[in-house]
Every structure is written in structure tokens, then in C-alpha cells.
Amino acid sequence: MERITGPFNGFFIATRVTHGHGNEAGWQALAKICRGRPDNFRDAFCCASVAPAQAFETAQEALADAEGRARAQTGTLAAFAFAPAQQQATPA
């Protein structure tokens, strides 16, 4: 299952839920923080990502956790994402 939400502070969040990663039982979710709205999770070009924190009993819990942690990160990324490009100083 995957979901695209946003914008939050100018970013979209693409989240994907998987079941039983490696030795972990339960549901885990990954999130990608994107400047533009992606078509799907796999092809999402992201500026940051959120790894699974733990396994959950339901896919909805895992999805909500990853999306919540990604939304929290958008506040810290917003100041950098929309700042004007800095000009590099040339060595003398």
C-alpha cells in the first residue's frame, strides 16, 4: 500500500508500507519527502527520506507513523528548500 499526501510546508510525502522486512514481523513504512507531487512512491524524486522506526501491528499504524515523522521534518527542510541559490566564491 502507498499514499501521496501534501503539500506540507511546500513538500509532498510519498509513503509505502511493507510487511515482514527481514526478521521483523509486522508492518513497516518508508517515507520520501518531495518538492513536487510524485506520481507514485517508486518514481518519487525526493530531497529526504524517513526510514522505518519499528514494526507495527497494522499497515495503517505504520503508514501514520512514517508520514507523521516525515511531516515533522518538512518544517526543518522548508527554510533550505526555498532559499535562493548561494553564489560560490571563486578562489583568488
Results as ranks from 00 to 15, higher is better:
15 T>D: 04
19 H>D: 10
31 A>I: 00
5 T>N: 07
73 Q>F: 07
2 E>L: 03
76 T>K: 13
64 A>I: 12
61 E>K: 09
1 M>T: 05
3 R>V: 10
7 P>K: 04
58 T>N: 07
9 N>G: 03
65 D>F: 06
36 G>S: 15
49 S>A: 14
69 R>G: 05
71 R>H: 07
53 A>V: 05
39 D>M: 13
31 A>S: 03
55 A>I: 07
44 A>C: 01
38 P>D: 05
56 F>Y: 11
28 Q>S: 10
78 A>R: 08
37 R>Y: 04
23 N>T: 13
35 R>K: 14
73 Q>V: 07
38 P>W: 01
90 T>V: 15
17 V>H: 01
67 E>G: 06
49 S>G: 15
4 I>Q: 01
35 R>C: 11
83 A>D: 11
60 Q>N: 11
6 G>E: 00
48 A>Q: 11
80 F>D: 12
12 F>Y: 14
1 M>S: 08
55 A>E: 09
48 A>K: 09
37 R>W: 03
26 G>S: 04
35 R>G: 06
90 T>W: 13
18 T>D: 13
29 A>V: 01
3 R>W: 06
34 C>Q: 05
48 A>V: 04
63 L>K: 00
5 T>V: 08
54 Q>T: 12
82 F>S: 07
27 W>R: 13
11 F>L: 05
49 S>H: 12
